[in-house]
Write a protein that binds this DNA or RNA. Structure first.
Length: 886
DNA sequence: AGAAACGGAA
């Protein structure tokens, strides 16, 4: 229904009827005018002129008898029927009841959205009754009247010195704040002071908001300070401070609120939660979160129903703090309470859906959005784009994007980042061009998506070039830009570059944040750089990131991957409320050290703590079973996945089971298991099976597995090597040659095998093909001595580990040159007597080196940690943590 | 009252 502009100043009845009014000041020029007011005003002119010329009196209700009662009318009230009633009213005048009739007509017209007629009736009946103006303007606003019109009328009346109702002053101050009408707000405040009126709590609140928005937070705080009893306005004061980034003041006021008789309202709690999230203030955040829950509970128990705004506050507050399961619970609660999610609920819900991986539910929500016509909202659209992106449905995302009526930078950035994540750089560039053509300027988010996209796909030079593009576009690369680069390299396994970019970032004078630290820890873990990892740990303590859940988990992972399980466990135990990811990490930590029983008991403890496991938990538990040869337990947990937890086993779980069965010698069972799998076996399955065949010396199965594997991974040299070793074991030298020829034919190069050890700041690499270590002579001298000592206590070199067609003495020599032996020996020579030795090898350890390391730990009384391609071995007093299950 | 970029476990 068309709005009308009844209060255009030319037709302000107060001015037309100046004869009956107090002395008139000339109205000031209007700051705002409705764009449609001119044409609409002409209609108003004629109407006003015609009615003003002949004063009309209103009839008594008796006249209306032909219409039935007013109440009866209310059911089927239409504009036509009200007008008919109105005309009857005009025809027969009766002074006594005129006021009642006029009020009724005004309400009817307002309800029907005919502001013009409502205003007309009001002008004729009440224009000179100033007390009525407040009521009328408030009603006018209630039914959707234009706030600008209200301001215009208010100004005119204000000039006349009219006193207004506090409710109207509150409303006008709100309008001043939203329209940034600086002068009127001041005038109102001044006249309140002049008249000695304090104004009620609402007026004061509105005044503070007005000052906060129009004159800055300090002015608002001044107003607040002058209020004698402040408790009622704490919510507003907190809000104003937080909106203006005064976090400390906001928290102070919030603490005051806890000692007052007042409670924080939903909006305040939400804003506090947001602010705490941004400021990384965890303790405050958790306290406030508790407050949010108790608020909801209190509302429920006292029978007060939260309104939609409160529900939405709760949804977004929980989503913001990563409490996604709570978001879903709140959604259910609000639906039970009879509220339908609106366009502002959907983004928070979708965020939770994405994080929880409830894709089917997400699609249902999409259906709901379409049925309820919420798809025109740009926030909803962007959230949907994001949901389909995260579920690998780029086409759906593009489709939603194309149908989006109002695109903004968020929508563009979402889709662009989707393409970049998939490595579809041409599509991303196409969108970038399109975006610029449509006049949307890329912002830092756009650029950072590009940096991240390039670096996770290993295109570091292009990523670095984008950093320069940022500068030439007039923006400055920030900590996110650099962290994108660092983390991209780390994810890709380009660890060295990752550290180099960190140094570059520091040179640029940019301080790392907790995300940077997490990425760097991943890098350190990847390289088993314990020293560097400890440095980063110190850095994170200095910067107070060490309580960040991500950083903590990354620390646990770094320590366990760097051979320091004790420190990993220390970090894990330091905190009480562990996240699922950190439980998973710690269980995995035990698993890679072959501490299967410990992994299982931690898993049980986790369940006692009411943390539900996910698929990754089971990967960790099953890895623990696999690395410790716990067959029964492995079966038990594998079966329970689907039955007890409703988690569908994925390929990595099947792979663990094949490994577990095969390694224990149950090759037939492993074979049957593979045949019965509901998913197509991939390379990880066949590789686990092949390695078991190798250990068991089962040629028939090995050849089947090898054939599958060479087809699935024709470029992986490890498969060829394993096959040649198998044939060499059975003295099938023709087949050895055949496989070698195949490698040449396919251009597959054997992967370099190397071991390294860090002594002080230097990393010493030992590799068969590489140039020898400068201290090689000394190392071999020590190694020969060591081996003769070891032989005295029972070491027998395992010449079966050498697959060359040479004599046994030569084989023994070859065994000595294995890189892990050299690295351990170097460690023995160059570290303090008590210090454990930490060696990293990029492939699996060979059985002879495993035996040798046990003896080395015995004869030299040293702990040796060896990280091989897949796991850890901890040698101590002549035995290994893996109990020879590997 | 809501949406997009960088972070942990496999």
């Amino acid at each position: 229904m068309d709005k009308f502009a009844p209060f255009h100043h030319h037709y302000n009845p107060l001015i037309h009827q100046n004869g009956h009014c107090p002395p008139i000041q000339k109205p000031k020029p209007r700051a705002h005018s409705s764009p449609t007011s001119v044409s609409l005003a002409s209609t108003a002119t004629s109407l006003a002129a015609s009615t003003l010329s002949s004063p009309v009196m209103y009839p008594s209700p008796g006249i209306l008898s032909g219409f039935g009662s007013l109440d009866g009318l209310s059911d089927v009230r239409t504009l036509g029927s009200v007008k008919a009633m109105h005309s009857q009213v005009i025809k027969s005048s009766d002074k006594r009841t005129s006021e009642y009739m006029a009020k009724t007509l005004i309400t009817f017209y307002l309800e029907l959205g005919d502001f013009r007629l409502a205003a007309m009736v009001f002008f004729l009946g009440f224009a000179r009754n100033y007390a009525m103006w407040s009521n009328f303007l408030l009603e006018f606003k209630k039914f959707g009247g234009d706030p600008i019109e209200i301001l215009e009328v208010f100004k005119d009346l204000h000039c006349l010195g009219v006193n207004f109702d506090g409710r109207l002053i509150t409303l006008v101050l709100k309008i001043c704040a939203s329209l940034m009408d600086l002068c009127l707000g001041l005038e109102i405040h001044a006249s309140l002071i002049k008249k000695g009126l304090e104004g009620d709590v609402y007026v004061k609140g509105a005044l503070m908001k007005y000052y906060g928005r129009c004159w800055g937070v300090d002015t608002a705080n001044k107003v607040f300070d002058e209020i004698p009893y402040q408790d009622n306005l704490l919510n507003e004061a907190i809000m104003i401070n937080l909106k203006n980034k005064r976090f400390v003041q906001g928290v102070d006021l919030f603490k005051r609120m806890q000692f007052s008789f007042k409670r924080a309202n939903a909006a305040t709690i939400l804003k506090m939660l947001q602010a705490c999230g941004k400021e990384g203030a965890l303790n405050e955040g958790q306290q406030i979160h508790g407050e949010a829950w108790s608020l909801l509970q209190e509302m429920e128990s006292s029978g007060v129903t939260p309104d939609l705004v409160t529900w939405n506050c709760l949804l977004s507050g929980h989503a913001l703090h990563g409490l996604y399961k709570e978001v879903i619970k709140i959604l259910r609660k609000m639906q039970i309470a009879g509220f339908r999610p609106n366009s502002q609920s959907i983004p928070s819900i979708l965020q939770a859906v994405i994080e929880l991986g409830f894709f089917t539910f997400g699609k249902e929500i999409h259906g709901y959005v379409l049925r309820n016509g919420l798809d025109f909202d740009v926030y909803v659209g962007t959230s949907l784009i994001d949901m389909y992106l995260k579920n690998d449905r780029l086409n759906s995302s593009q489709l939603i994007f194309d149908n989006l009526k109002n695109k903004n930078i968020f929508s563009w950035n979402s889709l662009i980042s989707g393409y970049l994540f998939k490595g579809l750089f041409d599509d991303a560039k196409r969108l970038l061009t399109q975006m610029k053509q449509e006049g949307v300027k890329p912002d830092l988010v756009t650029w950072n998506s590009l940096v991240s996209g390039y670096s996770i796909w290993g295109r570091n030079e292009e990523a670095l070039a984008v950093i320069d593009d940022i500068r030439s576009s007039g923006l400055t690369p920030n900590v996110v830009s650099w962290t994108s680069l660092i983390s991209g390299c780390s994810q890709r396994g380009n660890y060295r570059e990752s550290l180099e970019f960190f140094i570059r970032m520091k040179q640029e004078g940019i301080e790392p944040n907790s995300t940077t630290v997490s990425s760097l820890l991943r890098t350190c873990g990847g390289l088993s750089l314990l020293q560097k990892g400890k440095e980063i740990h110190c850095l994170s303590i200095r910067k107070c990131f060490h309580e960040d859940a991500y950083v903590e988990t990354a620390l646990i992972d770094m320590y366990s991957k760097s051979g320091d399980l004790k420190s990993a466990y220390g970090v894990f135990r330091k905190r009480e409320n562990q996240t699922l990811a950190s439980w998973n990490c710690m269980i995995m930590g035990f698993a890679i050290y072959g501490l299967g029983r410990e992994a299982i008991s931690l898993f049980q403890e986790m369940q006692k703590a009411d943390i539900l496991p996910d698929a990754i938990t089971f990967t960790a538990v099953l890895s623990g079973c696999k690395n410790s040869g716990l067959i029964e337990e492995g079966w038990k947990y594998f079966d329970s996945m689907d039955k007890e937890y409703g988690i569908e086993p994925r390929i990595e779980h099947y792979s663990c089971m094949v490994d577990l069965l095969g390694r224990a010698g149950y090759l037939d069972e492993a074979w049957d298991f593979i045949q019965a799998m509901p998913i197509t076996p991939d390379a990880s399955i066949w590789s686990a099976f092949l390695r078991s065949c190798h250990v068991q010396g089962h040629m028939e199965f090995a050849e089947v597995a090898g054939k599958e594997l060479l087809e699935l991974e024709p470029d992986n040299s490890a498969n060829y090597v394993l096959m040649t070793n198998l044939y060499a074991m059975s003295n099938r030298w023709d087949d050895v040659e055949r496989i070698k020829d195949l490698m040449v034919e396919k251009g597959v190069k054997i992967r370099q095998i190397w071991s390294w050890i860090q002594i002080d700041d230097r990393v010493h690499v030992f590799s068969a093909g590489d140039k020898p270590h400068p201290d090689e002579g000394q190392i071999y001298f020590e190694l020969y001595q060591l081996v003769s000592e070891m032989k005295k206590v029972g070491y027998v070199p395992d010449i079966n580990c050498v697959y060359q067609n040479i004599d046994d003495l030569e084989k023994e020599k070859v065994l000595l040159s294995h890189s892990e032996k050299l690295a351990i020996t170097y460690g023995l020579l160059n570290t303090r007597n008590s210090a454990p030795i930490r060696v990293v090898k990029n492939t699996r350890i060979c059985p002879d080196c495993h035996t040798a390391a046990k003896f080395m730990s015995l004869v030299r009384s040293r702990e040796i940690f060896l990280r091989d391609g897949v796991r850890f071995h901890h040698f101590k007093d002549g035995s290994c943590s893996c109990n020879d299950h590997w």
